[in-house]
């Protein structure tokens, strides 16, 4: 599948996932690659987010258009494109939900088709319960307690998600990820109401 690409400036061969020509050091037109490859990090759910940020910043230090402002229009265009892609990839990988979605997609799971048929009664009940608990909580102290409960549910779901990715159980991972996005939605809702 992969076609050999050649530097637009010096015609040297560019290895895959390389953004600079090794011979003339010119920036190359970025290709469509997945977020993990773009950032040059292993394809895993369990990312160290501090490390991810460091990688992100290092890449921007190399490819941000500010570094190319003196060069040709073409190079400015490529750096703007690449820098935009790095920005987006970082944002997506930084969130557990979209990171899981990317991993699922890479493993042949398309979330949207599964989304509509999602009606796991246990999960729905769990969500309803915690929402009611929040509504019925009379003091802000009690509400905060519910949020704590929700937070521990979130981290529990995250742990399970991580395990199912490790065991390559993508169907389970998909369900857990949908659950996680529901929980995250209520968390933001709760915070607004506090």
């Amino acid at each position: 599948m992969s076609v050999k690409s050649i530097c637009w400036s010096c015609e040297n061969v560019i290895p895959p996932n390389c953004f600079l020509c090794q011979k003339c050091n010119k920036i190359q037109p970025p290709k469509q690659i997945d977020e993990f490859k773009l950032m040059g990090i292993p394809e895993t759910f369990d990312l160290d987010l501090d490390e991810l940020e460091k990688t992100y910043l290092k890449l921007q230090q190399l490819f941000h258009p500010d570094k190319y402002s003196q060069l040709s229009d073409q190079e400015i265009k490529y750096s703007t494109l690449l820098s935009s892609m790095i920005n987006e990839a970082y944002q997506k990988l930084n969130s557990s939900i979209s990171r899981a979605t990317i991993l699922l997609k890479l493993n042949g799971f398309n979330r949207h088709s599964e989304d509509k048929s999602f009606n796991d009664p246990d999960v729905l009940e769990e969500i309803m319960d915690i929402q009611n608990e929040f509504l019925e909580a009379e003091s802000s102290e009690l509400k905060k307690l519910t949020i704590q409960k929700l937070n521990s549910k979130i981290s529990e779901t995250m742990d399970n998600l991580s395990i199912s990715f490790k065991n390559r159980q993508y169907e389970t991972a998909n369900k857990l990820n949908i659950k996680l996005s529901y929980l995250e939605k209520i968390r933001i809702d709760f915070k607004k109401q506090l």
């Binding site: 258009p65 703007t80 820098s83 935009s84 987006e88 944002q91």
Partner: peptide
């Protein structure tokens, strides 16, 4: 609050 540059 999307980081720039951005292409969507």
């Amino acid at each position: 609050n999307t980081p720039i540059p951005a292409i969507k």
